[in-house]
Nucleic acid binder design. Structure first.
Length: 691
RNA sequence: GCCCGGGUAGCCGAAUUGGUCCAGGCAGCGCGCUUAAAACGCGUGACCCCUCGGGGUGUGCGGGUUCGAAUCCCGUCCCGGGCACCA
């Protein structure tokens, strides 16, 4: 297309380009969208149903990858289809900007994480626009913005009021010479990534989120959405919940009873020991005065074993010396092992080698005696049905400077005092420049100095920040609220009621864990008050969790050197070919194995389609043109063509509704084949008539 | 180790709820067009047997349920992903 035509005045009819020039076509369309603000969230309209389509919130890594391209292409196709169906669509995006990688990048670049994040997301937004995604750019948010993280802090305080937060000791890696906590990523072979000094585990008091309070409700939500969420989404939610059905019985020992679970009710009589989590709340009571065992327990709780493998052969297992009496009179040794946590949560279970292989391994390793059943005990009650969930509470506080400060103040007289909600946000200094040494927040007097919300005396701020997983807990909500209102109203904004529950969540399969915790957050917010209208506590009626993008059977990663660069694709074949290729390549529920082959195939399809349309349609925009000229085909062929068109439209519509984008693409391609075939046959028939 | 997926032609994959396995694409091969090549178009396209009409075997492997299994069940092998202060 010539520059003159490209810049032609409105209304001027441009000649169709003879060949498909993706760059020119896309530039023209994207400029038009921008000028018309085509994807702005529409105001409420009683005649148009509202549909909120939620895509994943990417981390501000600085560059989009093919996984993003797949996810947003699926979501974008769905959002566009809903718009074309007449719905008022909310489709935007937010960035997950707090977290360790931003901090590490800032250290490497000797700049503030805030600057790095801003540069990163601005570049990613340009890439998204170049890809042609139909986001409402006005509603974009960044989790590290003050108007955003103030609400993470608000949520912390609301959870605290609701009894959903508690403090508990946990272990973290610590480097003595850098005087800082180390993430797992920063520990290499037990040494600090920065100074190569030894890393050691220390205890820290951490805030934990009590998701266990909502597990049963989450389970009900999963079952209620069978048929509404796609299969991968459902199975992922079930897997994360980790429900195990079985029975529980009470065993008795010198220091009281212990309720034990087993998923093998038929094999209770063959139990040879009791396996108990190091985190079991009643463990100290049962152990009584056994200094040696308590010391060993302490070591296990320090958690060093987690760095190694988790097989039954190597997982720690301590024979406590305590004996508990089973209903059949057998004396069962009490074994402490974290092996139970990963399967049943922090509970106690029967060890039954006859029914469970790893139980057999542990019995052999500890050389446990085979207990002899005696007469059934009189106090043995019958086993009762019971359920355990693997999902459990998790720590949400981090000893890092690039995060939302935890809104707690330390007062000499009052102790730990929550900041008042009306005093939020607790501002994170934007000009922090972490070095990897010490705690940058603790060194900032302008941040640390404050007064006690309770007594007004001088006080110090908490230096721990919220883990970015905490920011994620409510990332499904901010785009519901117009940007201009976000600094004063969020969870109880009227538009939350307009858009929630959302029509569709489209996310990578790796996001199942987030979705699980987010669903618990929705239920908590319903109970706390602002989202009371979500009666079942579920924020999305539809959910699709697509699989990842692979190459050569492996997940794409820099480490494996098998990444595909979206910028390169946009340069070479254009955004539309790239988008068509990711939709066409595999259905969402399957891994997409990337091949250049598929890209070339899609490029050819678009090129053929363009050439076909250019020959027949007057303008560069096919949908603005009149219907194709009536070919002189026989009436019965024309009828068949009409049948194909109707069938294709019905099928594609159904496919789009079910987010089966691969099928939609294939049905559209098939229709094009049919139309070409129709014309070929018509031409042949006409030649025959003339002859 | 535990949890979740997957294994269909030389390659990518259709067949999603049990109903004619392998649509479509790519590579290959043949033909057409061409001085030639590329591009393009048409055809062919699992394996074995064959009297050339067809017959048989084929969805990692072994069993099972069923009138009927890629699909459901049991076992087994292989591959991938997830279980952390990475997001």
């Amino acid at each position: 297309m010539s520059a003159a035509a490209e810049n032609g005045a409105p209304g001027e009819v441009a000649a169709p380009e003879p060949s498909y020039d993706a760059r020119a076509v896309e530039a023209r369309r994207q400029r038009d969208w921008r000028e018309r603000d085509a994807f702005a969230t529409p105001p409420p309209d009683p005649d148009r149903p509202d549909a909120y389509v939620k895509a994943v919130c990417p981390f501000t890594s600085g560059h989009i990858h093919v996984g993003h391209v797949r996810s947003y292409t699926i979501a974008d196709a769905y959002a566009r289809w809903r718009r074309m169906s007449g719905d008022a669509v909310l489709f935007s995006i937010g960035f997950d900007a707090f977290g360790l990688p931003a901090e590490l990048a800032a250290i490497a670049n000797k700049e503030s994480p805030a600057d790095w994040v801003q540069r990163s997301y601005e570049h990613m937004l340009r890439q998204f626009e170049r890809m042609g995604f139909s986001f409402d750019w006005e509603r974009v948010f960044v989790s590290s913005d003050e108007e955003q993280y103030r609400w993470s802090q608000w949520l912390f305080l609301a959870f605290l009021d609701a009894g959903l937060l508690y403090q508990e000791e946990a272990t973290v890696d610590w480097c003595d010479s850098c005087q800082t906590t180390l993430a797992s990523l920063q520990v290499e072979d037990g040494r600090c990534w920065r100074c190569n000094g030894p890393a050691r585990l220390i205890k820290r008091k951490q805030w934990f989120l009590r998701i266990s309070a909502y597990l049963e409700q989450n389970e009900r939500g999963i079952e209620d959405h069978a048929g509404k969420w796609d299969r991968p989404a459902l199975t992922a939610q079930r897997a994360i919940l980790g429900r195990v059905d079985g029975v529980e019985i009470d065993l008795h020992g010198a220091d009281g009873a212990l309720t034990c679970f087993t998923e093998h009710p038929d094999a209770i009589g063959q139990a040879r020991f009791v396996l108990v989590s190091p985190r079991h709340p009643e463990l100290e009571r049962l152990l009584g005065d056994r200094p040696g065992v308590l010391a060993e327990l302490e070591e296990v709780r320090q958690g060093g074993w987690q760095r190694g493998d988790r097989s039954a052969e190597s997982v720690p297992a301590i024979d406590s010396g305590v004996r508990l009496t089973a209903p059949n009179g057998a004396e069962l040794p009490l074994v402490i092992s974290p092996a139970v946590d990963g399967r049943y949560g922090p509970t106690a279970v029967l060890g039954i080698p006859a029914a469970d292989e790893s139980d057999g391994v542990i019995a052999r390793r500890l050389d446990l005696p085979r207990p002899e059943p005696t007469a059934p005990t009189s106090n043995g009650k019958a086993p009762r049905p019971a359920v355990r969930y693997r999902a459990g509470d998790f720590a949400i506080s981090r000893q890092r400077s690039w995060g939302a400060p935890i809104p707690i103040v330390h007062c000499d007289d009052c102790g730990e005092v929550p900041v008042r909600k009306e005093d939020l946000p607790v501002r994170l200094p934007r000009d922090l420049k972490p070095t990897g040494e010490g705690n940058p927040l603790a060194a900032r007097e302008d941040f640390m100095a404050t007064t006690c919300p309770r007594c007004g005396a001088d006080a110090r701020r908490e230096t721990d920040t919220l883990d970015c997983h905490f920011d994620d807990l409510w990332m499904w909500l901010p785009t519901c609220v117009p940007k201009a209102d976000r600094d004063r109203q969020m969870f109880d904004h009227p538009e939350c009621e307009r858009w929630l529950p959302g029509a569709m969540l489209i996310h990578g399969a790796d996001g199942g864990g987030y979705f699980f915790d987010q669903r618990i957050t929705a239920k908590a917010l319903r109970d706390i008050g602002p989202l009371a209208h979500l009666t079942d506590g579920e924020q999305f009626t539809g959910a699709v969790m697509h699989e990842m993008v692979t190459q050569d059977g492996r997940k794409m990663s820099k480490h494996l050197g098998n990444v595909v660069d979206p910028d390169d694709l946009m340069e070479r074949v254009g955004a539309d070919t790239t988008r068509l290729a990711v939709l066409h390549g595999a259905r969402p529920s399957r891994a997409l194995n990337w091949t250049e082959n598929a890209v070339q195939y899609c490029a050819k399809f678009l090129s053929d389609l363009w050439a076909y349309a250019a020959e027949r349609l007057p303008g560069p925009d096919p949908h603005e043109a009149a219907a194709a000229p009536d070919p002189d085909g026989a009436p019965q062929r024309r009828e068949r063509l009409e049948g194909w068109v109707a069938t294709a439209a019905a099928k594609v519509t159904e496919d789009l509704e079910r987010v089966e984008m691969q099928r939609a693409v294939k049905n559209a391609m098939r229709l094009f084949d049919r139309i070409e075939e129709f014309e070929t046959k018509s031409r042949r028939a006409n030649r025959g008539d003339l002859a």
